[in-house]
Design a protein around this nucleic acid. Sequence first.
DNA 1: AAACTAGCCAACCGCACGTTG
DNA 2: ACAACGTGCGGTTGGCTAGTT
Length: 228
Amino acid sequence: MGREAAVARPKLRRGLWSPEEDEKLYNHIIRYGVGCWSSVPKLAGLERCGKSCRLRWINYLRPDLKRGSFSQQEEDLIISLHKILGNRWSQIASQLPGRTDNEIKNFWNSCIKKKLRQRGIDPATHKPLNNDDVVAADDNAVAPHRHQDDKQLAESTDDHCFAAMDAASSDDPLAPHSPTVSFDPLSVTKVPTMQQGSYGAAHSFARSDNHLCDYGGGERGLRRSDDV
DNA sequence: AAACTAGCCAACCGCACGTTG
DNA sequence: ACAACGTGCGGTTGGCTAGTT
């Protein structure tokens, strides 16, 4: 990646994306791929930071996003993976084609946690709740077995997780919903391959046949294994 | 009908790590 | 080896909406 300095930028827009901005970003990536996120806003004519563009693309505009509510199989898979991986949402997302880490994280925090508690399971530890622990069982106390995660993931996902995933991803029963904006990225599906062999757009598309291919930074999801 | 509350979701923030010069 | 920069990740927050009182 280049090292052109972080030039003083004009004021950047923040907050919700307008349909026009979506369209600009989408059209730009469709045409040119991503290359360097920091240059995308300028090239696409957007007053956003590259980070914001990246997030918008990954979480919303990517054509391979599934959208719609989670199926029971997906939910089961998320719970299984969370038991192994803890809050490593990007790793979990890499096992769920068409789902983003942000989407899964939100789903976990808003729905699954509640369901598990109702079933008497501590969502942080995946162990049965006992009343004395309820207070102490902070949701942040997650993934007690980080160092074994990768091996465990390789093993365990090979059996039950992928079984569930196959059920979830095959012949998707979920009706995709359009975003609440007039610009509908789902109506277009062709994106050129990356020019720089980087991450992002083409990378995410390439993984459509490979569920283990993370759209993000590959191994980097493991780096925080010690700091929780 | 209005006020309040809870839930959901999109987006931002800060940090860690990889790459490049 | 070091600094600067780009990127990815998880945590957090703000705003919108639906439901309830």
